[in-house]
Design a protein around this nucleic acid. Structure first.
Lengths: 192, 192
DNA sequence: CGAGCGCTTGATTGAGTTCAAAAATCGTGG
DNA sequence: CCACGATTTTTGAACTCAATCAAGCGCTCG
């Protein structure tokens, strides 16, 4: 999926007024580097599909430290349209690491989308969620069982395109370690 | 959902031969404590709904250490019927922590289930996945930003019914620490 | 009743944190 | 295009939390 408007095209039977409503629930916005577009506690659930640039989603712990949850480069979605009724408020912040262009969709789109889904689209949607579960599962396992060095090497393999674009301390934050630790760890790796 | 057979009841339009096929894809089995019912690398995707007893799903790392991914008491599903085509082989083991009674469904059920889903059931299915994503997200964040002690206290609050039933070293394994560390950490807590 | 399993406790080690400061890099205005 | 200030990375020393190794205790179930 490269655009939320693809979703609308998958709904040929949609009445015109509905279609208009959904079209209006997607806006293309420009986000400046550093700009925060979602904060913890936000009730409004929005999905941000990155057309150009790079977003990050992160939590802030009790001590004010940031922990990056995902990077979202071109083609990725940050924030998700999914709505968990048991926990309606976001835990996560989202901001831009580069000047970005983003399609912002509010949850109307998703909910209406669901109502009109055909069997094919349904499977796509479920696949997307399953893949997400799978990615998260691996992250949990790796946080529990791998050293920082192993996690870093894994990151290099999995997200080479991101390594180039973000400051090293952000990678440290994704890995769950301090910038100093990552720097030293890299030194160790080079020494071999 | 307390039984996979509930799924079948949600499909009133199902032709009889199809229904019979699906009914045959669910088996009730007894699993003895310690018995392993899924291993890493298994291609066959099965879902295990616990009727009685307690299952655990866990990974084994390079050093042979086990890391518990979830506990599944009565009413929970271990293993999941979801099929990720990009990564068809399980990373996880599943075994029984108590003598258990389990409904075992193979992925036929799920796939057919999807084909016949109505709008209502679809939303339920997607909700289930979303909740799972949400749980995993919290686990990732907590592994990155909380100390072992904080994670233990969180576990006590979230899964009080499980604390009573599993050996302490299993809780340590879930928290991502050694049994010794958990024992000492508990000592500290009592001392206050 | 004994052997083994699980929990505790202690000593030692190691990975990663914290704090501080220097070195390298980046970005922006002149 | 350069220079300066700000940010990022590196390096070092001291410290902390949890891992590892080892020994002892208590329970249970075979």
């Amino acid at each position: 999926m490269n655009s939320f408007f693809d979703i609308l095209e998958k709904l040929p039977n949609l009445p015109d007024d509905q279609r208009k409503l959904l079209e209006e629930s997607v806006k293309v916005i420009k986000v400046k580097k550093g700009e925060v577009i979602q904060q913890r506690g936000d009730l409004v659930r929005k999905g941000y599909l990155v057309k150009k640039g790079l977003l990050r989603s992160y939590s802030v712990d009790a001590k004010g430290k940031e922990h990056i949850y995902i990077f979202a480069p071109e083609g990725w979605i940050a924030g998700g349209l999914e709505f968990d009724s048991e926990n309606p408020r976001t835990e996560l912040f989202i901001d831009a690491l580069e000047d970005s262009e983003v399609e912002m969709a509010n949850s109307n789109l998703f909910n209406h989308y669901l109502s009109f889904l055909d069997e094919e689209a349904l499977k796509v949607e479920i696949s997307r969620l399953i893949r997400r579960v799978s990615v998260l599962q691996n992250r949990v396992i790796s946080l529990m069982s791998s050293t920082a060095t192993e996690r870093y090497e894994e990151f290099l393999k999995t997200y080479p395109q991101i390594v180039q674009r973000v400051p090293q301390r952000m990678i440290a934050s994704y890995l769950g370690i301090t910038p100093e630790a990552l720097s030293k760890l890299k030194g160790e790796l080079v020494r071999k």
